[in-house]
Amino acid sequence: MVNIGAASTTRPGQVGLGVSGLTVAYDGPPVLVDVSLGVDPGEIVALLGPSGSGKTTLLRSIAGLEKPASGSVSLGERIVSDHRVFLAPERRRVGMVFQDGALFPHLDVSRNVAYGLPRAERSSDRVTEALRMVGLESMAHRMPGSLSGGQRQRVALARALAPRPGVLLLDEPFSNLDATLRLQVRAEIHQLLVGLGITTLFVTHDQEEAFVVGDRVAVLRDGQIAQVGTPDELYLRPADRWVATFVGDANLFPISSHGETCATPVGTVPLSSPPGGPSEVLLRPEDLAVTDGDDGTVELVEYYGHDAMVVVRLDDGVAVRARTAADLPFSRGDRVGVAYAGSGAIVLPV
């Protein structure tokens, strides 16, 4: 997994971000319940969750656009929001990029970027500098309406970065872009953020995006943090069944025994730890090998180029997903065998 951020040096001026015991409620049930999360200076943390899980609300609470019911938010040493203090968003020194960029349509690119700068700096080199960072210095006098979606997001980023914010917040910044453009803009912005070493919290509902860009990923579910960890921790050692299936494909089978191994529809599987109660075993598709054999029938093949996902319907009726190499010696309808090829499966409590 990508983990360049941790290696980059933290620039001066970057502060950490701390959220502790944050609860946000409107009229109905609370949107966020007792959320605590820390982002180290210079770190990129992805906030991953399905829609309605409260991730945007968390971002807006940190920015000061929502008023939490309880809990505190601190930027570096400074508490910006708790039961006594509530610093207005314009005084928090937080940069934010919105889903659609939210560029001011009546101002050209350079005046958009200059908007957050102190009056004296607005005509200085800082604007050009910020535009150069995102590779758009030639677009300084274009109007936002004439830019492409990717350009707009990069201008929005330049605008957020120009005033040298202590913390950068990104709200699903790539979700309005189409697939190919999204990968390209994502790679560019990722590189830029890592290079700048800026403390970043970004919201996404796309598991792949969270893993690719985040040094760490916080998974949010129903207004609560389900798990925080590096991408590989989340993928290989998910805290529970829900996280396991949310961050990737999963074959889950109930465990009936209590020993070091357990019997599954794909044979006996060694366990990484003995189960302590009713549990399930997690077999990722990469852990399964499709072999010559007679365990089941190939029901579906999803071919991705770098590899392929094969759905095999076993003879006892269970369907399993296995990831195989790009050269496929079988096709739909063939009889195949399925075997466990990993070194020890994770046990999840039910």
Partner: peptide, 8 residues
Amino acid sequence: DAARLLGA
């Protein structure tokens, strides 16, 4: 919101 976060 964007203007606020830019300090306006």
